[in-house]
Design a protein around this nucleic acid. Structure first.
Length: 276
DNA sequence: TTGTAATCAAAGCACAACAC
DNA sequence: GTGTTGTGCTTTGATTACAA
C-alpha cells in the first residue's frame, strides 16, 4: 500500500493498478500519467474535472476515462467524494491483443452506491491480505480489473445504458431510490410490485424503465447482487453452502446452486474449492 | 404510458450421490 | 445415520412482444 497525496482518504497501489478515494474539498494540480489509464467516478456530490483543457461537471456516477498522457486535474465540492482507479495500459487488453488501443467510451455511468461498496471491499481485502497473502491480493486485483473491463466494454450489469442527452447523463431519482433499496434489501424477498411502488410507476412501465436504466431486469439485478455477496462469503467464511444460500434470501440451497452455476459457471462448491 | 397474453426462467419440493 | 451438495420435475411468477 502507498500513502498517496495528503488530502486523499485512501490510496492503495498494486502492480497493475492504483485505487484512490478523495473527499470533501479535495483538489489536485494539472498532471498526466504516461502508462496509466485513469477512471474517475464521483460517488457523492459534484466533481469539477478538467481534461485536456475541457471542463466537465461530473455528478454522482458520471464516470470519465483519461487516456495515458491526457493532462487533467480536479476539485470537489464540499461534502463530495470521488473514486479514482488507475490501471496500467496493458491491464485490460485481454481480448484486443497486446498493441491495440482499448475501445471504450470516454463517458461511462457507474452505479455510485455499488462502486462505493465494491471499493470498500477491495481496499479492505488489499489492506489485510497484500503482505500476508499475495495470492489473495492478486485475486482482488483481478476482481477490480474484471469489473472495469465489464463496465468499460459494456457487458456489465451497470453498463452505462442511461439515457444520454448531449454531454450529460440523465439521472432518474425514482430508479436511484429503487436501486438503493435493492442494495439494502437484496437478501430478503423483494417483489416487482414493491419496487414499482417505490418508483411510483406501474409494474410494466417500471420493468421497462429499469431495464433501460441498468441494462438488466430487476430480478436479474437482484440475483447478481446476491451472487456477488455469495462469492465473497464463499471465499471468506466457513459457513456451509446451505447457510450462505439461506442468508442471501435464496429459497433453497438447490436454487442457489443452480443460479450460481448459471452466473459464475462453477457450482458453489467448485468455486470455494478453486479458491477464486 | 398502460395492459394483455405468451414465453421462459426461477422457485419449490423431492430425492440421489457422496463424504464423514 | 447425518449433513452437504447436486439433479429432476412441476408450479409460479417475471419478462417481453404486441396492441391500444
Amino acid at each position: 500500500m502507498s500513502s498517496g497525496e495528503a488530502e486523499m482518504e485512501m490510496s492503495i497501489r498494486t502492480d497493475r493498478m492504483e485505487l484512490f478515494k478523495g473527499a470533501d474539498s479535495f483538489s489536485n494540480q494539472p498532471h498526466n500519467h504516461r502508462h496509466f489509464y485513469q477512471f474517475t467516478v464521483p460517488v457523492q456530490g459534484i466533481c469539477h474535472f478538467t481534461m485536456d483543457n475541457r471542463p466537465f461537471r461530473l455528478h454522482e456516477g458520471d464516470g470519465l476515462v483519461q487516456h495515458p498522457g491526457a493532462e487533467h486535474y480536479l476539485h470537489l465540492d464540499d461534502a463530495s467524494s470521488v473514486i479514482i482507479i488507475k490501471f496500467r495500459q496493458d491491464a485490460l487488453q485481454l481480448d484486443n491483443g497486446p498493441n491495440t488501443r482499448p475501445e471504450f467510451a470516454e463517458r461511462q455511468w457507474m452505479n455510485p452506491l455499488d462502486l462505493s461498496r465494491r471499493f470498500q471491499h477491495w481496499t479492505t481485502e488489499l489492506m489485510f491480505t497484500e503482505e500476508k497473502e499475495p495470492l489473495a491480493a492478486q485475486e482482488t486485483e483481478i476482481q477490480v480489473l474484471h469489473y472495469l473491463k465489464e463496465a468499460l466494454y459494456g457487458s456489465s450489469m451497470f453498463d452505462g445504458k442511461l439515457e444520454n442527452r448531449g454531454n450529460h447523463f440523465v439521472r432518474d431519482v425514482h430508479l436511484d431510490r429503487v436501486l438503493e433499496y435493492m442494495h439494502e434489501c437484496y437478501s430478503s424477498a423483494v417483489s416487482i410490485e414493491e419496487l414499482s411502488a417505490i418508483a411510483g410507476q406501474s409494474r410494466y412501465h417500471f420493468m421497462r424503465m429499469f431495464h433501460a436504466y441498468t441494462g438488466v431486469t430487476p430480478y436479474q439485478y437482484l440475483l447478481r447482487l446476491r451472487i456477488e455477496d455469495a462469492r465473497i462469503q464463499l471465499r471468506n467464511s466457513s459457513a456451509s453452502i446451505a447457510e450462505i444460500s439461506c442468508s442471501l434470501g435464496f429459497s433453497s440451497a438447490s436454487q442457489f446452486h443452480r443460479i450460481f452455476l448459471k452466473v459464475v459457471g462453477l457450482t458453489p462448491g467448485e468455486f470455494r474449492r478453486s479458491g477464486r
